[in-house]
């Protein structure tokens, strides 16, 4: 069961565990909105070490405002970056005002 749905405000966990991670550093700790649920996939953090990657993890495409990600962003205010994030890296967040 997926915990989040399209339109939900989420924040990426600010964590630095060791191992093979698909959550880029630049997006950790940032808040965005779920653009869509992409399905459930084997966890790459487990697959990387020869394990089965189960249970499957919901994967989301999360949209972030560039000005949220880079406070000194020089482009237009409506610019965004979409990043795929597995559910265990996300927590609920308050809607951005």
């Amino acid at each position: 069961m997926a915990r989040f749905a399209a339109g939900d405000a989420v924040a990426v966990r600010r964590a630095h565990p060791p191992g093979h991670l698909r959550t880029p550093y630049y997006i950790r700790g940032k808040a965005g909105v779920v653009e869509r649920l992409l399905g459930e996939f084997a966890n790459p953090e487990e697959l990387a070490f020869g394990r089965d990657g189960l249970p499957l993890r919901p994967l989301y495409r999360v949209r972030f405002a560039q000005r949220e990600v880079w406070p000194d962003y020089a482009g237009a205010g409506a610019d965004t970056v979409d990043v795929e994030i597995y559910e265990h890296w996300l927590e609920p967040a308050r809607k951005a005002g």
Binding site: R22, T23, P24, L38, G39, F41, P44, L59, R61, R63, Q66, G75, A76, A78, D79, T80, V81, D82, V83, E84, I85, Y86
Partner: peptide
């Protein structure tokens, strides 16, 4: 132009 929204898509996982 500034009024065109730029959307970057980072291929970080399965898609």
């Amino acid at each position: 132009p500034d009024d065109v929204v730029v959307r970057v898509h980072d291929n970080t996982a399965d898609m």
